[in-house]
Design a protein around this nucleic acid. Sequence first.
DNA 1: CATTGTGAAGCGTTTCACAGCC
DNA 2: GGCTGTGAAACGCTTCACAATG
Lengths: 229, 229
Amino acid sequence: MAERPRRRIPEATVARLPEYLHILSELDDSIEHVSSDQLAELAGVNAAKVRKDLSYLGSYGTRGVGYEVAYLVYQIRRELGLTHDWPVVIVGAGNLGHALANYAGFMDRGFPVAGIVDVDPAKVGTVIGGIRVRHVDDLQTVVQSRKVSIGVVATNPAAAQEAADRLVAAGVTSILNFAPTLLSVPRGVSVRKVDLAVELQILGYHEQRRSVPSLSIVPGTDSSQSASA
Amino acid sequence: MAERPRRRIPEATVARLPEYLHILSELDDSIEHVSSDQLAELAGVNAAKVRKDLSYLGSYGTRGVGYEVAYLVYQIRRELGLTHDWPVVIVGAGNLGHALANYAGFMDRGFPVAGIVDVDPAKVGTVIGGIRVRHVDDLQTVVQSRKVSIGVVATNPAAAQEAADRLVAAGVTSILNFAPTLLSVPRGVSVRKVDLAVELQILGYHEQRRSVPSLSIVPGTDSSQSASA
DNA sequence: CATTGTGAAGCGTTTCACAGCC
DNA sequence: GGCTGTGAAACGCTTCACAATG
């Protein structure tokens, strides 16, 4: 039962579905249903937004009752493609690569670290988060043997483009880039960039505005609480 | 010269200004002017967007010529509040806190790490990135003596809310949260959240769509390359 | 009768297109 | 001629408000 809702889901909704999923997964097992109000409260968003978001998955709620948690979890997982794991490979075994490899959230949420590679021979062979660091020349082997389609660039900015090129050559089709560099990749490869310093600069902007009370009241501030907004 | 443009800058623009600044800072010193086309190319965005964004700072370009790099850098820095450094304090000396403390990009871009604290006595006293880890009870001292207004939560999810509470109590007014937890903070405190697993899940969604060729063509994919979009 | 699902309004962002200016 | 600055159109996302319904 339940047809495939082959609709195109708005990008903003896609960015929130993982949040809902996470919240639902952490709910007490005794809770069978949630209303859009409750979920909205937990996610820190508006209830209408929750309903609209969930409506893109299909009509899986029950009027007067709410959404059945287990079923909703299943539907979101399916829509996000989380019915199976997506092994990832990390390029760069520096501090950030280290932290990412050890980050339990990746494994827990369906993204096991299939491998870590580095150019530096001194790092090759060391073990991080239970995984032996391999040389970047072995990238293709790792990607192909473990069927990896997502790569993480955790190198310094100067090495980021080469890391991306190697990932693409090895067959990766999605890249999460932590280097403050615009990667150039062939059409058909997706890139998401997370720039830690940019996040601080955005906060800095708001701090500064706070201290220059230009006019009247300090704005109620940002209770949005999400970088992708 | 140059009046204060006390306009309110759209949030989307604020998120891009740090990118422009970064690009401009890395330009060869011999380059005196950039056009919106060139800057757009380097930032991976549309030229009209660059012009609109920069127009919120005031009219600092020259028609037929472009923008003077040095002056534009100055204006963006001023608008972002980067005329002085913003020391930050990191709560959590685990893998992520470790990586962040060592991340050169923070210091380089005006956010020196004023301190790192942890609850674990075993970690207190160790040195990370040249900074001695202090006990979380010393948070207030660090915040006040170093005039810190931005805190970074790099704890595990269970400890994140307490970390935030302590930061707020110590006087911090902006928080960058890396824990997958919705923080509850008093009005007037800004929070930005970066959830590493969510970024992967968004990529996973696109990967999955790619493999289900639902209809016709695989969409040209995401050349947006930014998580805040 | 509580709660969903959704048209329609509202709002912020992007893009177009071109007048204005150096 | 080349490039900025910006109204206006187009777009996408959010929120409202309420009819539909278990």
